[in-house]
């Protein structure tokens, strides 16, 4: 029962937390707000509406329980873990190193068996995109091991 209602439960928690956070917002002096509304009013109204809609959703699920979603497969989990790895590598080394490593591992996780193809894709794609953005769009990328060497 609780498992079936997991979505309404999560939505309720999120809505209540947002209402709580909205109630912590500063009140603006009436002189500035005038006849309009306080900055906290609109988000609170939205979340109240969300709670109402969530109650309807919970009722719908109670009346007609949905099919249980298939468990997430290994590749999906791995892809999400690689996103976390991307964050870690970007912060600690360089964004382009992180992209290349994650692209390579993503290819392998998705079933690519030709290591050379995966490696070539992981190196050439970010390199070509970098050349385009750096030379044509004049975008400065965040400094890291590679960018420090490139920008000097």
């Amino acid at each position: 029962m609780i498992k079936q209602q997991i979505v309404p439960i999560v939505l309720t928690i999120v809505s209540v937390v947002i209402i709580y956070l909205a109630l912590q917002l500063d009140l603006s002096p009436p002189m500035i707000v005038g006849d309009s509304m306080q900055p906290r009013a609109f988000p609170i109204f939205l979340m109240a509406l969300n709670l109402f809609l969530t109650a309807i959703l919970a009722y719908q699920i109670f009346k007609t329980p949905p099919k249980k979603p298939e468990p997430m497969n290994r590749v999906t989990w791995l892809s999400m873990v690689l996103m976390v790895l991307f964050y870690g590598l970007t912060v600690s080394t360089d964004m382009f190193i992180a992209i290349a490593v994650v692209m390579f591992l993503l290819s392998l996780a998705w079933g690519e068996r030709r290591l050379l193809v995966a490696a070539a894709n992981a190196v050439l794609t970010p390199f070509l995109i970098f050349l385009l953005f750096d030379n044509v769009l004049r975008i400065r990328f965040p400094r890291g091991i590679l960018m420090n060497w490139y920008y000097g």
Partner: peptide, 14 residues
């Protein structure tokens, strides 16, 4: 897909 979607990843973040 193992070649295509890593490219989408790179395009997305950059």
């Amino acid at each position: 897909a193992a070649i295509l979607w890593p490219i989408v990843f790179a395009l997305s973040v950059i």
